[in-house]
Design a protein around this nucleic acid. Sequence first.
RNA 1: GCGCGGGUAGCUCAGUGGUAGAGCAGUUGGCUUUUAACCAAUUGGUCGAGGGUUCGACCCCCUCCCCGCGUACCA
Length: 476
Amino acid sequence: MRRDKLEALKRRGVSAFGGKFEISHDPGALKAAFEEGLAVRVAGRIFSRREMGKAAFFDIGDISGRIQVYINKKEVGDEVWEMFIKEVDIGDFVGVIGKTFVTKTGENSIHAEQLVFLGKTLRPLPDKWHGVADREIKYRQRYLDLLSNERSREVFVTRSRMVAEIRSYLSQRDFLEVETPMMQDVAGGAAATPFETFHNALGMPLYLRIAPELFLKRLLVGGFTRIFELNRNFRNEGLSRRHNPEFTMLEAYWAFADFEQMADLVEGMICHLAEKFCGGLKLEHKDEEGNVTKTIDLTRPWKRTSYRDLLRGVDEKWFDYTPEERLKRAGELGVEIGPNFEDYEVTQHVFEKLVEEKQFNPLFVTRCPKELVPLAKQNPDDDSVVDVYELVINGQEISPGYSELNDPQVQRARLMEQAGEEIQKIDEEFILALEHGMPPAGGIGIGIDRLIMMLTGAESIRDVVLFPQLKKKAGS
RNA sequence: GCGCGGGUAGCUCAGUGGUAGAGCAGUUGGCUUUUAACCAAUUGGUCGAGGGUUCGACCCCCUCCCCGCGUACCA
């Protein structure tokens, strides 16, 4: 049907897929800063049309927004009018040359003097009122979601602006953005299963990075003092509402700082984003009907509490129990424990289920057990804990921050302890770098996707990642 | 991986062991200030795939595929 119109356009001497068209305004920008009587040239896709015999209204737009156009037969001429009626469909691209005006009903619009055809759409757009509701279509064909759901457009435009703002926030504080390898010989810096690939010319396996940490620290050794990297990490693990196999991570390192300065930096940055993009520090998450389901209060200063105190809040005698008693108590508290859990892992699971997942307002968890964080410095007064924070907001870990471990001998020992059961191999090149001297430093990581979820009120990571990973459909 | 829910027209959704439905989109006609335009008519289906039960299956049973939620894995 629409293909027939391609032929009709050709007969009319009109290029079905258009070309250059100079514009004076983006549709949304024109609508936002409307001024009457302006000569304008606007291009966009037609999203709806209302015909009335010899005149019509239609809406054109793009990611910037939409604006209404008025067109009538007498002014554009019979030829263009006939093309508009017979060959132009919802979804097609057109250019409009005309003047801005306000309709009887008060709608800021463009009065078309000329209409230029700029591109044919061979398939119909989704329902104009409901948009795309099918999750699978939203994720597999994100373009249809963006075209038909205002909310999705908002989230992704906001994400883009927030990421740009993070970069500018850090560069204003003299942090330099750097790029380190995504393909690594040893996938270090975290404990996660990596994706494996193979380099033919070098004849060696390579791993997609699970974290940039060990390379960023090499740069501290090399004399950089304030650096960050904001890019993708890859982890070959399960998918969930909070996990996508590739996700965006910010890591920043600051020489001669410690984890508390890093906490201040992160607190300041997240509050800045909330004030700039979310209208303040009280965030409301809403369901599809617009009812408030959750409120997150980012008012400063954010609480800083030790890991052990938080667990004592669950059970004040938690650390007085024997490991066997803790295992039993975890069961009583309804926390499922795997078969070969170490004692600290039992405690960590109780922490995750009964503290982390219930914590919506920001909380810096400090003095975490050293087993959990082998790349951080031990506390000088109690070497069973490390000088770190784990920032929890919205029931999720949003950001860890460390006083970075820079003693190569201790670092090797700590990684060896860890490597026992984990697959992690020691990155000898990293240890070698540390032996050349890494300055004391603070470091942070921020899971950007989860941060965006928290700030935009998205329930699933798939709603803040443009193309989330899905299973390949049979036959496609 | 396991458990629960889902897959019906391009989109949003109803539906029943006995001829497959609505709204929007599309098509045709009418209408020169509409905005979920309106009025009239009309086209459109592998009911996720395959097998089974039945006189008859979109519906019941089995297997598989995909999506969602939960769970497991996850510094």
